[in-house]
Design a protein around this nucleic acid. Structure first.
Length: 424
RNA sequence: GGAGAGAUGGCAGAGUGGUUGAAUGCACCGGUCUUGAAAACCGGCAUGGGUGCAAGCCCAUCCAGGGUUCGAAUCCCUGUCUCUCCGCCA
């Protein structure tokens, strides 16, 4: 969502910014509606002022015991006009809001230009790739008897997985490990949020109105299943004026995520890379405009840290203009090495939304005692995707000698003595 | 799920159709007094928007959306949330 006054001031700036995302100029259309709306509004307000003034006279006449009939009829005459203008004003406002809320965030200046993920820029690599190629998690998991896709398909259809035994435990261990590191070392507060939210929450984080078809919803209560914990965590400050001294606020949560994956038919159909349901540990930071870029780097570092501790090789990329998400000004992706695919795959996405979401959800901050408020900056990042981390552990810690999976050192405390997962 | 009560400024809390954008208290800001502070006293203090060079003027907002009325914080309908009681339940 954008400040209409900022668009009035420098329309070319906005058109240029949207052009970087491959969009046509929109400001002339927006300003035309805005101008029309203000004309209507001025007219309406003048009429309302007149109505109010004349109405007050009725009260005075009646108080003095006079006959107000004539005066009442005079005011009644204004009524129809007011209603008409109100309707016009409302419609124009709606039109304006629809356009403004469907336009993506402005990109940061250091985002590279490009059309799709092929143009993302690698920033650096970390870790030694020990296994260049090998069996993928499907093969390893099914062989061990810890992953069952068929059984899941029977009860839930495609894009669901059942984990069994030590593999299920390994998934839980990963979640626990991530949360523990972020709360202990990175300043995040653990939150257990609702998994079902109302449309206004999704509007706030900008999944709605544009991406409704990507969400699951409930039939009888009109709830949406969260596509990521970014939604409830960020909405914790919706409608609030948070004390400047309490920033940054750092929240993290371990939740299931639900995605309909509309539009990705045929992509990543093998294995559990792209599911309708997966666990993710999410980090959200609420901060000030001055500190958000610094916080962005901090958050990226938090996500990278857990991969380093797991000794999983990864590379970090900055998304190009065409690949950066709707609400983000800048996004870093961390891609983990998957020997089964012989490639790096996204395991974390860390974005700075600046005031884009804050405007939508009216989340502001105020210095103690000060009069004016400012919008907060919001950031979110996976820390990291648990399902994909599980794939990465399975494939990178595969032992070709016996077909087992070695439990990474840092996960051992969570595995109850299991050091290697083998066929049962 | 059933029955009832409620939602007013940063907070507490008045206000049931007419100069009420809203009493009062607390908090906050400025001033007088004081060596300084406290107390006391005086004054200020909601938000969003339109218009204007500006001072200002105007409009909207008493949970949200509709309605009744010349006029709504106040009356009616719907929704949301909170509380109380009953039922059910991990």
């Amino acid at each position: 969502m954008f400040d209409i006054r900022a668009i009035r001031k420098e329309p070319e700036f906005f058109d240029k910014a949207w052009a970087r995302r491959g969009l046509e100029p929109r400001t002339s259309e927006i300003l035309k509606i805005d101008e029309k709306k203000r004309r209507v509004q001025t007219l309406l307000q003048e009429l309302q002022a007149k109505r109010n003034e004349e109405s007050k006279k009725i009260g005075i006449i009646k108080k003095d015991g006079g006959d107000a009939m004539a005066q009442m009829e005079a005011v009644a005459a204004i009524k129809g006009q007011v209603a008409e203008l109100e309707e016009k004003d409302r419609k124009l406002g709606e039109q304006l809001k629809n356009i403004l809320s469907s336009l993506p965030n402005l990109l940061s200046v250091d985002v590279p230009d490009g059309t799709d993920e092929g143009d993302n820029k690698e920033l650096y690599k970390w870790g030694d790739i020990k296994s260049l190629n090998g069996p993928d998690h499907v093969e390893i998991g099914e062989d061990i008897g810890g992953i069952d896709f068929e059984m899941a398909a029977k009860m839930s259809g495609a894009r669901f997985t059942i984990l069994i035994g030590a593999i299920a435990r390994l998934e839980r261990a990963l979640s626990q490990f991530f949360i523990d590191i972020h709360t202990r070392d990175h300043g995040y507060i653990e939150v257990s949020p609702p998994l079902l939210v109302r449309d206004n929450a999704l509007y706030g984080t900008s999944q709605l109105p544009k991406f409704a078809e990507d969400q699951f919803s409930t039939r009888e209560t009109d709830h949406y299943l969260i596509p990521t914990a970014e939604v409830p965590l960020t909405n914790m400050v919706a409608g609030q004026i948070v004390d400047h001294d309490s920033l940054p606020r750092r929240y993290c949560a371990h939740t299931p995520c639900f995605r309909s994956e509309a539009g990705s038919a045929g992509r990543d159909t093998r294995g559990m890379l792209r599911q309708h349901q997966f666990y993710k540990v999410e980090m959200v930071s609420i901060t000030t405009p001055e500190k958000s870029e610094e916080e962005h780097e901090h958050m990226l570092n938090c996500a990278e840290t857990v991969l380093k501790k797991l000794e999983l090789p990864f590379r970090t990329v900055i998304l190009c203009s065409g690949d950066t998400g709707f609400g983000a000004t800048k996004t870093y992706d961390i891609e983990v090495w998957l020997p089964g695919q012989e490639t790096y795959r996204e395991i974390s996405s860390v974005s700075n939304c600046k005031d884009f979401q804050a405007r939508r959800m009216n989340a502001r901050t105020r210095v103690k005692g000060a009069k004016d408020t400012r919008y907060v900056h919001t950031l979110n990042g996976s820390g990291v995707a648990v399902g994909r981390a599980l794939i990465a552990v399975i494939e990178n810690y595969y032992d070709p000698i016996d077909g087992g999976i070695i439990v990474p050192e840092v996960l051992k405390p969570y595995m109850g003595g299991i050091e290697k997962i083998i066929r049962t």
